[in-house]
Design a protein around this nucleic acid. Structure first.
Lengths: 134, 134
DNA sequence: ATGGTGCTTCCAGCAACTGGAAGGTCAAGG
DNA sequence: CCTTGACCTTCCAGTTGCTGGAAGCACCAT
């Protein structure tokens, strides 16, 4: 399989696949003409990577998960701890964003948004030294 | 005021402040010795920037907001539309992350996490070609 | 004079790609 | 046989928003 076909099947841009090879996540063979030659195992890895990435695992997480995936004697606890750690980060990010959303939507609701220069949003950005306590 | 003092007051790293000058968000004066010399107006801008950045506005958003802030004849609608756009992006991100969180927490719950190699998380990453429809 | 801290500039690097240029390869059509 | 066009290759640069570090002045206290 050439990169184009793999790209379609794995739903990953060819550029991304080349990048994954660059950083050592996959090592496809080469045809005599220099074209990358992907086997089913490569496809599987790429599908795995695509899935893990859409779940927001970092590339280094993916590297670790791939290693565990390839390790027949791995303990499932190892995988679980990576996933749990990542889950915690996702939850933190959600709550940070929720706070931001609340502030923003409050500001947007307060702002009439007409032709007058008076703007509560700017006023708030100006007057609210949020990090004073830092 | 030198950069160190401003850095403390605005709760922004000195590196960040220099970076903001580099990209033209602020233009502090210089003392004869070459040191940056910040006036109150610079401080205000930096505080404004810090606040806007903690709310997740991009640098380019900040540039636009600063320009509006400095524009006495601005329409508050202009500010509002930037904030609304950003709010929409934040909300999108929250819901994306919530989906990820749900999937992840489901996986983590399913996984016993013991010494056995059998791992539902890896299995799911393997078997679930999430982007097939792309 | 010496030490320590603070300031300067510039260069490199992070994550995870993405875009584009310059060029080789292959299959089809004339 | 030649051309066209799609596909492949490599390499370099850019993205966002900083951050780290090196090399070298500036300033103040002793």
């Amino acid at each position: 399989m050439n990169i184009g076909e793999v790209s379609k099947k794995a739903a990953l841009p060819a550029k991304t696949i080349r990048y994954y090879e660059d950083i050592g996540l996959i090592t496809p063979l080469r045809d005599p003409n220099g074209y990358r030659c992907f086997r089913d195992a490569d496809m599987h890895k790429l599908a795995f990577l695509g899935r893990a990435r859409t779940l927001g695992f970092t590339i280094e997480d993916c590297r670790a998960l791939l290693a565990l995936w390839n390790d027949q004697s791995r303990a499932s606890a190892d995988v679980r701890s990576i996933a749990k750690e990542h889950l915690a980060q996702v939850e933190k990010k959600i709550s940070d964003l929720q706070e931001i959303r609340d502030t923003l939507s409050h500001l947007v609701r307060e702002c009439v948004g007409d032709e007058r220069p008076d703007c509560p949003i700017l006023k708030s950005l100006e007057e609210f030294p949020s990090r004073e306590h830092a």
